[in-house]
Design a protein around this nucleic acid. Structure first.
Lengths: 133, 133
DNA sequence: TTGCTACTGATAATCATTGTCAATAAGGTT
DNA sequence: AACCTTATTGACAATGATTATCAGTAGCAA
């Protein structure tokens, strides 16, 4: 496959999402528009997906079923997230023992091609105190 | 709140879903129709949701974003699933240490109101061998 | 049996996401 | 710098799952 072309739109998206939050494609589209960048919604969807395929962004599915995207600093290692349900901030966590453990329990029951999803959500410190008055 | 009325449709749904698979609302609707039960799609959605609220069915979100439902034998304890991506069969698993561990790591980083999702998927023994020829 | 009201179902509406396709622009090549 | 090939874009239509609407129906308590 040929490498992706660095268009104005792709650059704008990469620039925007490198601030660490998990947001939906529509939310990123809005921020970009708000920042003055004329960009189409379909392009945002397509570009985020292509970046996700390349491993440059992480995706997560929210409670309401939307897919959330955020920049991912090019780790190839599998990892998980601890995400704030209120502001979208997220930190990466890894669970080395969980990886092995899940594989073990699944194959013990005859399962192959094992995959897993693990997501932790909560309210970060800032949001916790704020919602407390 | 008043307890749910036991209608013909609700009974048919409960009867149908007690066979252990995870399927989408639309899939359950089809099986019910196939079995001769005249029942509306909206009713299937509403009833499955109400059963889920009461803790009588488990829900899981598939890779493609559909919500899958299956009967849950009235445990109040939190648990997780090992589900076959091919046939939908699922078994329950529990991860006592994971529960505590996730709470610990999250609160160590200042998070409160912690929730988590853990789902294991794979190909069950039957499907593995079948897809192998 | 009666009455109140929750439940049902056909269908329209919603919402996130993907497909379409002509116009545009990356970026390598003369 | 002008040129060409083709990936990319964007407005909009289409999809697909789920939810809302609302008049008709049927639990079930009295």
């Amino acid at each position: 496959m040929t490498p992706a072309r660095m268009t104005r739109q792709r650059a704008a998206i990469i620039d925007a999402i490198s601030d660490g939050d998990f947001r939906s494609a529509q939310a990123w589209h809005e921020s970009l528009r708000g920042a003055g960048s004329a960009i189409g919604l379909a392009t945002v969807y397509r570009t985020l997906q292509s970046l996700a395929d390349d491993g440059d962004v992480d995706t997560v599915v929210s409670e309401s079923g939307e897919t959330l995207y955020r920049w991912c600093a090019a780790h190839t290692t599998h990892h998980h997230h601890l995400r704030c349900r209120s502001c979208g901030t997220a930190e990466e966590i890894d669970l080395p023992s969980f990886e092995q453990w899940s594989r073990a329990i699944a194959s013990a029951r005859g399962y192959t091609e094992i995959e897993h999803t693990v997501e932790l959500t909560g309210l970060c410190h800032a949001c916790s105190t704020e919602l407390d008055h």
